[in-house]
Design a protein around this nucleic acid. Structure first.
Lengths: 208, 208
DNA sequence: ACTGTTAACTTAACAATGTTAAGTTAACGG
DNA sequence: CCGTTAACTTAACATTGTTAAGTTAACAGT
C-alpha cells in the first residue's frame, strides 16, 4: 500500500502472503466464514487487490489446496527412506494421521470437502507423483510390502489394499475432526482409536 | 400465501414442508449455497416467513440434522431383531454403509460437517437412545458380541471397539462421498472396499 | 352480517458479502 | 522531469441473512 509490488519477486511474495493469510483464516473459521475484505485487511491491502493475484475466492482456495497436498506429501516423503517395507507402511500411516490431526483444517480442506462443490480440481502436476501425491506414496509402499509376499494370499489387489488402509486411517481422523467432543459419545482417546485401527488392519492383512 | 396456516396442524405441516425443501436444497447444493429466499420461493412463501417457524438458518439446519439422525437410526433399527449377535454386527455395518451411500448428502450433513462450525448440537432426546442414536445401536450390538466372548482377549474395551468399527465404515463411505471420482486414483468399487474393510476388521477382532 | 383483535404473512430496509468497473497513484524509462 | 503503465483503491452492484415495520386473513363476539 505504501509501496507497490512492482518487481516479479515482490509480486510472488505478496501472492504467497495472501495464500498464507487466507489459509490461516479458512482453517480457523471455515471457508465461507472468511471474507475477502478480512483477508485483505490482514495483508494491509484493499479487498480488490486480491483479484489482481487470484481470479476469485475459489481460485485462491484451489491454490491453497494444491499447496497443502504438496505439503502433506513432503511431510510423508521422509518416510520413504526407511529400509524395511513393513515398517515403512506403519510409518506412513502414522505420518498421515499425524498430519491430519496436527493440521485438522488443512486436512479438512483437502480430504473432507466435497471437491466438486467448491470447484476444487487438482492440477495434473500433483497426480501419481511421489513428491506430491500422498495416495501414490501409500500405494507405492503397499506394493513393496505386497511384492515381499507379506500379505495373506487372498489380498492381491494392491489398489484395493491401499484404498482400504487409507479409508481406515481417514475414518478415525475424519470422525475426530468432525465430532471432536460430542458429549453423548464416550470417546476413547484418538491415539487409542488410531492404534487399534492400525492393529486390526495389520492383523487382517498379514496374520495367517 | 393464499390461505394462512392458522390451525396447529397446518402450521406443523408447513414447518415440515420447509424442512423437506430445505434439506433437498442443502444436500443438493451445499448449506452455504442455499438462500433463505430460494427455500421460500419453493414453498410459495416469502423468505421472512421461514423465520416464523425457525429462529434462523442454523436452527433450521439443526432440526434437519436431528430428524436425519432419527431416520438413520430407524433405518438400522430393524437389524436389532436379528437373533445371532455376530450376524447383527455385520448387518448393522452393512445397513449403516447402505444408508450413507444411498443418502450421501444426508450423511454428509450428519457425519461429515464440522458441527461446531455450523452450531449444530443434537438434542438430548437423540442420545443413548436405541430408537434414535445409531452409535448407541452399534455399541449395544458390539457389547452383545463381546459378552458372548467372540473377540480376542486383548480387545476388552467395548467403546473402543465400537468406535474403531465405526471409523472403518465411515472412512470408506466418507472418502467415497468426498472424492467419488478423482481420476488420478484408480478407485476400486466402493462395494469391494466396504467388503474388504469389514473382513479386515472382523479378522483383526476375532481370529485367533 | 359487522367489527375488532390477533396472529400469519409480506414488504422494506440494513449491513455484509463477492465481484466488477472506474478512478488514482506510484514507479520506471525516456 | 514528464508520460505511460501497471499496481492499487474507491465506488458501486447484486445478493445474502436478518429485523422492523406494515398488511391482511381468520376467528370471536356482538
Amino acid at each position: 500500500m505504501l509501496t507497490k509490488s512492482t518487481s516479479e519477486q515482490d509480486k510472488q511474495e505478496l501472492r504467497a502472503r495472501i495464500m498464507e493469510v487466507a489459509r490461516d483464516l479458512f482453517v480457523q473459521k471455515g471457508i465461507d466464514a472468511v471474507t475477502m475484505r478480512e483477508i485483505a485487511k490482514r495483508i494491509g491491502y484493499s479487498a480488490t487487490s486480491i483479484y489482481l493475484y487470484f481470479a476469485d475466492k475459489q481460485a485462491l482456495l484451489r491454490e491453497i489446496c494444491e499447496s497443502d497436498f504438496a505439503a502433506m506429501a513432503s511431510h510423508i516423503k521422509v518416510i520413504l527412506e526407511i529400509a524395511d517395507a513393513e515398517k515403512r507402511l506403519i510409518a506412513i500411516s502414522d505420518s498421515y494421521a499425524k498430519f491430519a490431526l496436527m493440521y485438522p483444517n488443512h486436512y479438512q480442506l483437502m480430504y473432507m470437502t466435497p471437491h466438486a462443490r467448491y470447484g476444487i480440481s487438482v492440477d495434473d502436476e500433483y497426480k501419481n507423483n511421489l513428491e506430491k501425491d500422498a495416495y501414490f506414496q501409500l500405494r507405492t509402499v503397499v506394493n513393496a510390502v505386497f511384492l515381499e509376499g507379506k500379505f495373506r494370499k487372498e489380498w492381491n489387489d494392491v489398489d484395493l489394499i491401499a484404498q482400504t488402509l487409507w479409508a481406515g486411517i481417514h475414518g478415525v481422523c475424519a470422525l475426530q475432526i468432525t465430532m471432536p467432543k460430542e458429549d453423548w459419545i464416550n470417546w476413547r482417546p484418538v491415539e487409542h482409536r488410531l492404534q487399534m485401527m492400525q492393529t486390526l488392519l495389520k492383523l487382517g492383512l498379514t496374520e495367517r
